[in-house]
Design a protein around this nucleic acid. Structure first.
Lengths: 237, 237, 237, 237
DNA sequence: TATGAATGAGACTTCATTCAT
DNA sequence: GATGAATGAAGTCTCATTCAT
């Protein structure tokens, strides 16, 4: 409470910026940030298990052990928390993939391996964050103009990918890179999310198909000498 | 199911069955059917423009000129109407595509043209039914176990596609056909829906990319001698 | 909806119209009307004793033994009940005075006696309806544009007076009559209301002064041969 | 109180005393006094435009650039500010009229001119302080026993008038003077306030009627040789 | 069967006031 | 003394659903 220093490492720093989006008041003090974090964590859980519509702000506040009045000091309304959650998620995924993509080895990987890494990473992220897509979709249908709000957050992610693409094939226009990045991100996200609640075997198959899909598509833009997909990705079980 | 000829004798039958899903009472009389139709039409409009959460059952009933009491004779609760809507939509899309796929000419088309037709048809359906995907997503996050409910409706659509695939390449297993059908349907749906509220130029580009994506992917399962995608699909404007 | 005839007598009509103002739904059934009446009665009491701000809609509904949901079926919001109350009051006062003024004897009375009757009647009305003015003032400061809303209701009252004036002195313009009516009504109302919570002696004096004031003023417009006010009104105690 | 010369030595004294009423702590320092003044100014504006009920203490404090914590060091609660405002207003009006009445020339004026000056001054005060009456009425219905609280403040004003009356007609008892003062003050206040939001022509007429009313009434207590009201007040435009 | 007035739990949100810093 | 984040009781109002007519 009275601890004077709490931010000597810059790691937590970036994470604290993430939660700032859509907030009414930027929580400067450590306790406030903890509260916001608790609120988001509880909200994520409730939205996922009960659904957005059936989750009440009072329930969120109560479970997060934050007075409802304080809740509304941080979030202007119920929808804001949904928005904060999606933005936080998008940023987390971006960080997650950025760490992967920025690794020199990965960037230099042949396309098939590259795709495999990308998709495995995304898959892992989804597994670790089961609420991601569900919350995304809820936001989609609940928040007016969500697409525009989201586009900004999404952009960072797509641009990272786009940059990697541009390095891999300098002849592509920026437009090309962005569109391809958009398609890849969205398709992977959709397919992996659909695979989540399937039985393990089918799930594994869907992940494999996702890789096949992405790779086949990307090869249009990154021609290589690898001609046999099955060889590079391994065959079906 | 795989019979290529669509029988004309039980035409009205299938259409009346469509709206039966999730209904409390099968409306036998013409007036009831009209009412159900009006309810669905109004609900579709309101869900799309206002969002599911902000649409009240009373508003739906009022606009559909159906007494609220009667409303609850057809639909057990608010969610049921969402379910009925998604099922109706899925069936409509299935009918829509079935009509296309069942045409002998189309089935015999080379893969690129086939894909093009499939995607253009889906795109058109989305354009004509702007609420489709939005309602789908709402159902996803609102109705518990929606995926399982939906899977049945989806199945018919996927099976149609699957059957077409089997005819095109008899060496594929049924499992393969179904998975590929699932992937194609979902990916096309997702991408086309994302393109809907984009500006025309970007939208056109996304449709093109969708075709590229689907074709590249399908060529893994339907090898042919067409090697140049751009030739077969035409280049960007 | 299907009731073909419902307005053969005009007597109860006017009384039922009174409470209709500002209502969300016109209560057609007897039970509904009773409820509205109970709500108004309870609200009047609570507004007077507790004040408008401290009176809750739930308290009103509870004391009136009307479910809060039903309450909001009749009144769109808390302010509407205030408005209904003021309009009802104005109408009641109008009815009250009209009955007096319409009496042939009264209309023919010399001005001093006429004024005396008018003020005594108003005083009695205020005594019988202690909430009148308080609620009026609350409405004044709570409802935006209340003055305009009120003006209509007020008009009837003023016009009755105005008509009586015109008969008494045909040389007056309508404009004159209305302004004088307005001044008399407002001044009497204000002064009598101020006298309500004073001790009896002072109160009686204030009523007397009110009569003196009104009479002196009116004599500007209705010259007569009565020259000594004290004679006609009696002298101070 | 009735001394005709207004002392110049304790000028700032009186002004600082004005805001002291109902305050928790007498602000000794200049900054505190500024703050109280700012609070009152902002509150007056907000109460007038938004209404008392919809104005929050936090909003007042924020707009007055006074920390909410400090706010509560000056005012025990929200109602206190309303009370302070009314008392300040009453004092201001008293000062305003006192300055007028204390002028030897005015006191010696014939009754019609005297009344005219009094009413014009009051009218001007209302015009310059548009929130006066509204805030008065709000206090009336919000603060319990406001009448008693107010009576003290009012008394000074009435006593000034009462004194002037006594000088004008020494045969009147003090009781008479006070009652007449009360009636005149209240009636003028009420009528002028009602005229404020009317169109200019009607407003002018109402001011004229107010003069006629007051003069007619006062002539009962101050008989003179002026017999024609219209001559002395001028005729309508 | 058809109707729509009635219901009331509970949703979201506000704001006067406090008190730890 | 000064500050403003924190508080939570309580307010207004909604709406899915029922059931008496």
């Amino acid at each position: 409470m009275s601890d004077s220093a709490s931010n000597s490492n810059s790691a937590s720093n970036s994470s604290s910026e993430l939660n700032t989006a859509g907030l009414r008041r930027k929580p400067r003090q450590a306790r406030s940030q903890e509260r916001v974090d608790r609120i988001l964590a509880v909200a994520e859980a409730l939205f996922t298990t009960e659904g957005y519509g059936k989750t009440t702000t009072n329930a969120i506040a109560a479970q997060a052990q934050v007075p409802i009045g304080s809740f509304y000091q941080f979030f202007p309304d119920k929808a804001a928390i949904l928005q904060a959650l999606t933005i936080r998620y998008t940023n987390q995924l971006q960080q997650y993939l950025k760490r992967l993509l920025d690794t020199a080895d990965v960037a230099a990987l042949p396309l098939p391996e590259y795709v495999e890494q990308l998709i495995d990473a995304t898959d892992q992220f989804f597994t670790e964050n089961p609420g991601y897509y569900a919350i995304f979709m809820e936001a989609q249908s609940t928040i007016p103009d969500f697409n525009e709000i989201d586009r900004a957050a999404d952009m960072a992610l797509i641009e990272d990918l786009s940059t990697a693409f541009a390095q891999r094939n300098p002849t592509l226009t920026q437009e090309d890179c962005e569109v391809v990045g958009f398609v890849v991100i969205k398709v992977i996200g959709n397919l992996l999310w659909l695979s989540i609640d399937q039985d393990p075997i089918r799930r594994q198959r869907l992940v494999l198909e996702t890789k096949k899909l992405a790779l086949s598509y990307l090869q249009n833009y990154f021609p290589s000498n690898t001609s046999n997909l099955d060889e590079s990705l391994g065959s079906t079980t």
